[in-house]
């Protein structure tokens, strides 16, 4: 699945990384605990979270994540967006609750197989 499909499935919009819609995502990780993500999210995955502060960008960058998808209407502040742009981290946002967003992505992933 690529980011364009992630955007479609979750009715999300792109906050940064507009040119990266073809980027492949190798999987998904859902968590709001940063050390949990640090220890368990895989390279190239999309991270679903309601945390929006700038440390999220640091985690995504260090792990080479494909993107961060803010769920449940969570909106990053200007600092987070600026940092993501500077570091080339892709940020997406959806109004869907985390469960709904994750569920749709899971279903799409299973249909792909």
């Amino acid at each position: 699945m690529n980011l364009k499909e992630v955007l479609e499935k979750t009715e999300a919009r792109m906050i940064t990384g507009e040119s990266e819609t073809d980027r492949e995502c190798r999987g998904f990780y859902v968590s709001d605990l940063l050390s949990d993500v640090m220890g368990n999210a895989g390279e190239g995955e999309v991270w679903l979270t309601i945390q929006t502060h700038s440390n999220v960008v640091a985690v995504a960058l260090l792990l080479n994540l494909a993107a961060v998808l803010f769920t449940a209407g969570a909106e990053p502040d200007a600092t987070t967006i600026e940092k993501a742009r500077a570091e080339g981290v892709v940020l997406l946002a959806t109004a869907l609750p985390t469960f709904e967003a994750a569920g749709r992505l899971y279903r799409a992933l299973m249909e792909e197989k």
Partner: peptide, 9 residues
């Protein structure tokens, strides 16, 4: 609140 403190570091 910021998502730290899982005790996993």
């Amino acid at each position: 609140e910021m998502g730290f403190g899982a005790g996993m570091g």
